[in-house]
Simulated assay, not measured.
Amino acid sequence: MTVPVFRFAPSPNGHLHLGHAYSALLNQQMARDAGGRLLLRMEDIDRERCTPELEQTMQEDLHWIGFEWEKPVRRQSEHFAVYREALDRLIGMELVYPAFLSRGEIKHEIENLGGNGTWPRDPDGALLYPPTDRQLSNTERKRRISGGQPFSWRLNMDDALEHVGEPLFWTELEPEKRAVEAAPHVWGDVIIARKDMPTSYHLSVVIDDALQGITHVVRGKDLFQATSVHRLLQRIFDIEPPVYHHHALILDHDGEKLSKSRRDTALHSLRQEGVSAEEIRSMVGV
């Protein structure tokens, strides 16, 4: 019988807040109820914003609220070679291409294509990447790369969906167990890696979950739509998918999602102000 494996995977680019406390403690509760394991992963591919000091504070805050995990902690920054191997597979399959447009250039190119005001956006609100760089010749791509032009590796969504060739689904556990049909096309040609970083959130989370044997992904509903991209990558890499539970978010008084930049909901600040761990657990209801 397979032992369930859960994980809590924050990015150490700021202080944990009450929403993180809820997610961490919910993972712990569900892991205990299932007789499973619980891992901690630091998603620190952004080496400019993620620091050892912030990770240390995160671990202290997690210990304080009673969150316990198996050692060692997996740090994504220590596994770039693994993500590079996965990226090379996608390059070899011709499912990704170098994309050279900056954010400003994306908007300008869309205007040139006559799509101003009507161009589709992804679930996060960003304009979908125009097809311009898909159409470049290999010679032109090599010329730009050798000339030092910045670029990202983007998934050719049309080719990826054709490669898969069938509908994709994932299992959502709450509020009732059900099959959800993935819709990766709504993201367009998502970024898979960058010139100076052989991965992105989408790629690294899929590879890490597979390598760590994660069976249950419990995370906020703000990542519900991203699961469509993850299911697509899982199918491309022939990875058995975990089951998912996208939980409700803890919001502020204005109904907005909490931010790591806010001091009033940061665990580190609340701990310094004398709030007890028991009060934190009461606040988040776990």
Score class of each variant (00 low, 15 high):
residue 100 F to P: 05
residue 108 H to S: 11
residue 107 K to Y: 04
residue 94 E to F: 09
residue 92 G to C: 05
residue 46 D to I: 08
residue 138 N to M: 13
residue 149 Q to F: 09
residue 118 T to S: 13
residue 63 H to L: 09
residue 52 P to L: 08
residue 44 D to I: 09
residue 113 L to C: 02
residue 140 E to H: 15
residue 114 G to N: 10
residue 103 R to A: 14
residue 108 H to I: 11
residue 149 Q to H: 12
residue 119 W to H: 07
residue 75 R to I: 01
residue 111 E to F: 05
residue 41 R to V: 09
residue 30 M to G: 00
residue 76 Q to Y: 08
residue 53 E to D: 15
residue 122 D to I: 02
residue 36 G to E: 07
residue 83 Y to W: 09
residue 42 M to R: 05
residue 143 R to C: 03
residue 118 T to V: 15
residue 53 E to F: 02
residue 25 L to H: 03
residue 95 L to F: 11
residue 110 I to C: 01
residue 153 W to F: 11
residue 83 Y to I: 11
residue 89 R to I: 13
residue 109 E to R: 12
residue 74 R to F: 15
residue 93 M to Q: 15
residue 52 P to H: 06
residue 87 L to C: 06
residue 86 A to K: 12
residue 132 T to M: 05
residue 27 N to T: 03
residue 53 E to P: 02
residue 88 D to W: 01
residue 143 R to N: 15
residue 141 R to V: 15
residue 83 Y to C: 03
residue 101 L to I: 06
residue 69 W to P: 00
residue 48 E to A: 12
residue 150 P to K: 06
residue 92 G to Q: 15
residue 110 I to E: 06
residue 59 Q to P: 00
residue 142 K to H: 12
residue 86 A to W: 11
residue 31 A to Y: 05
residue 84 R to S: 08
residue 62 L to D: 01
residue 92 G to L: 01
residue 142 K to V: 15
residue 92 G to W: 03
residue 136 L to N: 04
residue 149 Q to I: 14
residue 24 A to C: 04
residue 137 S to Q: 04
residue 101 L to H: 09
residue 26 L to F: 13
residue 113 L to K: 03
residue 126 A to P: 00
residue 144 R to E: 09
residue 82 V to L: 13
residue 133 D to Y: 11
residue 80 F to D: 03
residue 138 N to E: 14
residue 36 G to W: 05
residue 56 Q to T: 12
residue 144 R to T: 08
residue 155 L to H: 07
residue 127 L to H: 13
residue 62 L to H: 00
residue 124 D to K: 13
